[in-house]
Amino acid sequence: APVFARDEANTLDQIRSYNNFYEFGFQKEDPARNAGQMVTDNWQIEVSGLVDNPGTYTLDELIGGLTVEERIYRLRCVEAWSMIIPWNGIELADVLARIGVQDGARYVAFETTLQPDNMPNAGAYGMDFPYVEALRLDEALHPLTILATGIYDEPLANQNGAPIRLVVPWKYGFKSIKSIIRISLLAEQPPTTWQRIDSHEYGFYANVNPTVNHPRWSQASERPVGAGLFGGRRDTLMFNGYDEVAPLYAGMDLRVDY
């Protein structure tokens, strides 16, 4: 896995000012401007499906006592830009152990909060909220997969997915769903938002892959955000550089399962 030092990472200001969180607007600066109204007090997460301990959890009940680590990951957006972000989070596997995954569960589905009164773009034509995402169980259990609660040891800003979000560093950013209120363990593959909007362009797996282009643009290279006007591009790496996940996809044709 690529290892980054903090001083290679984007600044907190950059990370908080350049976001895709379409419930708050389509432009990169919209979430920073509009997400302040999102209510994150007394956050609850509903856990359901093939689990031993279903129910509604407070944040503390769900993650309290688990080891919070700093993970400095590169985030590669499907739009071909990238950032390096020092997350604070816990491994999703630890949370899944706490809620007890039952036999027969093969997928983990997530849902983002939907607060139409506090999200100016929640009713946007062409979108389909609440935002939903999902992972295959083995992807969810991989030690690289975390639930993040902070960046640079600060609580997540709303536009970054407060109070808790998924981070899957080898997949395009849209898989790393924000502001999670629901987690379900399922036997069948659930729909995901971008796949539902346009399955031709966005697949379920969405692994970073320089050899499989988005139908409208190349994924071979990316623009590191924050590098300035003359920063140029860097070549995109398979699995965003996180090669250790390759065995998860052994035998699969990643051109088909994109």
Binding site: N10, Q14, S17, Y18, K28, E29, W81, R223, V225, G226, G228, L229, G231
Partner: peptide, 15 residues
């Protein structure tokens, strides 16, 4: 503005 960092963190895309 792009040159002096006043066009956001991805000035190339913005321009």
């Amino acid at each position: 503005m792009a040159l002096f960092g006043r066009l956001g963190v991805d000035p190339v895309a913005e321009l």
